Amino acid sequence: MSTRGTSTAGIARATGIPWETWTARLEELGARSMSHAEIARRVAEQLDGVVENHEWWAQSVTVAWEQHTGVRRPGQTGDGSFGTSASRTVAGTPDEVLTRWTELLAGRTEVDGVPFRQPPSTARTEKWRYWRARLADGTRVAATLGEAGRGRTTVAVAHTGLPSAEDVARWRGVWKELLAALP
């Protein structure tokens, strides 16, 4: 399975190293027999002093290489699970939108046929608002709300721990539908 072209092009621009050079370097290092952490550490050593946020870029190179070689599929995390996300920007302050989101989901005991393991919770920081839920299938959902300017708030829903790539499309659709219903 190949890597998305945009990510490899972005890596090449940011690091100043063409993607073909990265793949050759990683093959020479013996990355196929290394753990994700070891590959990322070795790439970080190469990028230290070369780019800002060299450890972040090392992770990006490592994930892209794992996708390129078929070790990891797009959307797959290091533990083998998958995740998806959806977002929408709506009118209102983060507090107002969090209230509307919780009201939209109030009274539900499940989402798309999967029960909540426990009732969803909310939290606040000075800058962010959060809605979190654990589902009975072991997955987690987090809605993060933040100011988008001009009296608007962005709601970003992330669903993690999904068992397969097929679940990504299903759940992304579920969360997009719920976000579309957000008044």
Rank of each mutant, 00 (worst) to 15 (best):
residue 76 Q to D: 02
residue 126 E to V: 09
residue 125 T to P: 07
residue 105 L to F: 01
residue 5 G to W: 05
residue 19 W to D: 04
residue 80 G to N: 11
residue 43 V to H: 02
residue 101 W to Q: 02
residue 114 V to T: 13
residue 169 A to L: 11
residue 54 H to W: 13
residue 128 W to V: 14
residue 87 S to Y: 06
residue 123 A to N: 09
residue 160 T to Q: 13
residue 38 E to K: 15
residue 67 Q to H: 10
residue 119 P to W: 00
residue 90 V to H: 08
residue 127 K to S: 09
residue 74 P to S: 08
residue 75 G to E: 05
residue 138 G to Q: 13
residue 32 R to Q: 15
residue 87 S to Q: 14
residue 175 W to P: 06
residue 92 G to N: 11
residue 167 D to A: 07
residue 21 T to Y: 02
residue 25 R to L: 12
residue 47 L to R: 08
residue 169 A to E: 15
residue 15 T to E: 06
residue 86 A to V: 09
residue 101 W to V: 00
residue 92 G to D: 09
residue 159 H to N: 11
residue 103 E to F: 03
residue 148 A to H: 11
residue 79 D to K: 05
residue 7 S to W: 06
residue 114 V to P: 01
residue 114 V to A: 01
residue 161 G to T: 09
residue 74 P to M: 06
residue 114 V to N: 01
residue 2 S to V: 11
residue 74 P to G: 03
residue 62 T to M: 05
residue 168 V to N: 09
residue 131 W to L: 12
residue 60 S to D: 07
residue 179 L to V: 10
residue 163 P to S: 10
residue 130 Y to W: 12
residue 131 W to M: 03
residue 121 S to I: 08
residue 129 R to H: 02
residue 56 W to L: 15
residue 108 R to W: 00
residue 86 A to F: 02
residue 161 G to I: 05
residue 87 S to R: 14
residue 140 R to K: 14
residue 42 R to L: 11
residue 175 W to M: 10
residue 36 H to L: 08
residue 67 Q to F: 05
residue 132 R to K: 12
residue 132 R to M: 07
residue 133 A to D: 00
residue 77 T to E: 11
residue 88 R to Y: 03
residue 89 T to N: 10
residue 110 E to V: 01
residue 96 E to R: 07
residue 11 I to N: 01
residue 181 A to E: 15
residue 171 W to K: 04
residue 123 A to T: 08
residue 144 T to Y: 03
residue 14 A to I: 04
residue 124 R to Q: 12
residue 166 E to D: 15
residue 12 A to S: 15
residue 66 E to C: 13
residue 7 S to P: 00
residue 33 S to P: 02
residue 68 H to R: 09
residue 99 T to H: 08
residue 136 A to H: 03
residue 183 P to F: 04
residue 144 T to S: 11
residue 161 G to F: 04
residue 110 E to W: 00
residue 110 E to I: 02
residue 34 M to D: 03
residue 143 A to L: 13
residue 37 A to G: 15
residue 35 S to Y: 04
residue 170 R to Q: 12
residue 182 L to E: 07
residue 78 G to V: 13
residue 105 L to N: 02
residue 67 Q to Y: 05
residue 176 K to P: 00
residue 57 W to Q: 05
residue 96 E to N: 04
residue 2 S to L: 15
residue 183 P to H: 05
residue 105 L to T: 04
residue 76 Q to S: 05
residue 71 V to P: 00
residue 63 V to K: 02
residue 17 I to F: 07
residue 138 G to A: 14
residue 57 W to E: 05
residue 155 V to I: 11
residue 135 L to T: 00
residue 118 Q to I: 00
residue 30 G to C: 10
residue 31 A to T: 08
